[in-house]
Design a protein around this nucleic acid. Structure first.
Lengths: 192, 192
DNA sequence: ACTCGATCCTAGCACCGCTAGACAATCGAG
DNA sequence: CTCGATTGTCTAGCGGTGCTAGGATCGAGT
């Protein structure tokens, strides 16, 4: 049994290596540079090995997305933890979200831009994704306003942040005004 | 001279054919299906002909985007034209925007999701793009609120719509609540 | 009528995601 | 301890991608 266990451990280790390497490569040179060949070379195995762990490139993106969702939830909870009062919390949340998106563009893409084959907004949505949404909801629920479903409010707030994040990164919005946009967003959307 | 003029006319005609065909193909089967080979086959020329009109695939996407921007501006102005009062106008604008995005996903992608090599939010931004933004601004300026730059407000409103449009289409937001999200967005963002 | 430049196509490059099939290493049964 | 079966990995290759070099063809101007 011990031999099999060791092999399983090594296999799991290699899978982590694949995901970490894919993420690293994507963060360094963009997802376009993450080809199965390059990835295989970096982990020092042949291409088919990738396919013994994942069905294809899409699933690798999905794995990076799940990892990123967990981290994003942590980042957002950390951002709001020290803030005093609803308004400060919401502002910190928004800044934390955009900060994460800016600092981890490849992970953000895996999560919200690319197709990682993951189901969103369903019962069978993976726990990390649900939890990241929950992290948003925890802070936003208290400013949703009377008679407004916290879930719906959170979706809208999230969509706005997503729009800012993506349009800014693709240079469709000038980056220098992001701070003022966030202020305005919080001022208007949140009921304080 | 007349011969050269005819040739120029035919060349321009062929360029329109390329753009129209690319758009059609993208709208039917997605941008991934728009390969230079397939496109060349559909217009009944060889691949290199495409490169005598455009530097590459990116520029073709850009051409579709410009065409789409003009249409989008028209669609938004049409949507707001018949609405009475600021609130109705803003709601109609938001609905018109999301409608256009849903009905022309490939064009929308060319405009706001893919890289068409176009400069946005700069002095040398192509006129159709500026005009599409202007169409948004025309309606939104009157509800920006006191002391808030109309441009900044428009950017934020646009980003929110963009987030809703993209997250909904990639099934990260359930589509059935779009109407309520738009209502909430207008209620909160616009100063009526 | 002939030259010469513009126009277009064939063929091919390097790369992509993905997989079949050969091969080696390891395991379990006799 | 041997030997067949299983597992794991690799090489090689398929059909596709965006893009381009170089040769053939055609037609306009002399």
């Amino acid at each position: 049994m011990s031999v099999q266990e060791r092999k399983q451990r090594e296999r799991a280790e290699r899978e982590r290596l694949i995901v970490a390497t894919a993420r690293e490569l994507a963060e360094q040179q963009g997802w376009d540079a993450v080809t199965t060949r390059r990835l295989a070379e970096r982990i020092e195995y042949s291409q088919p090995v990738l396919y013994s762990h994942f069905r294809g490139k899409r699933e690798i993106i999905g794995a990076v997305a799940l990892q990123g969702a967990t981290e994003m939830a942590v980042a957002m909870r950390a951002a709001t933890a020290t803030a005093d009062g609803p308004r400060a919390r919401v502002t910190a949340l928004a800044r934390g979200y955009l900060d994460f998106a800016e600092r981890n563009p490849a992970v953000y893409d895996a999560l919200f831009q690319l197709d990682g084959g993951l189901p969103y907004a369903q019962e069978d949505t993976p726990e990390p994704l649900k939890d990241a949404f929950a992290a948003l909801l925890e802070t936003l629920a208290e400013v949703a306003g009377d008679g407004v479903e916290p879930g719906l409010f959170t979706e809208l707030f999230w969509a706005s942040l997503h729009g800012i994040a993506t349009l800014t990164r693709t240079r469709r919005l000038p980056p220098e005004d992001t701070g003022r946009r966030v202020e305005l967003l919080v001022d208007r959307l949140a009921v304080l």
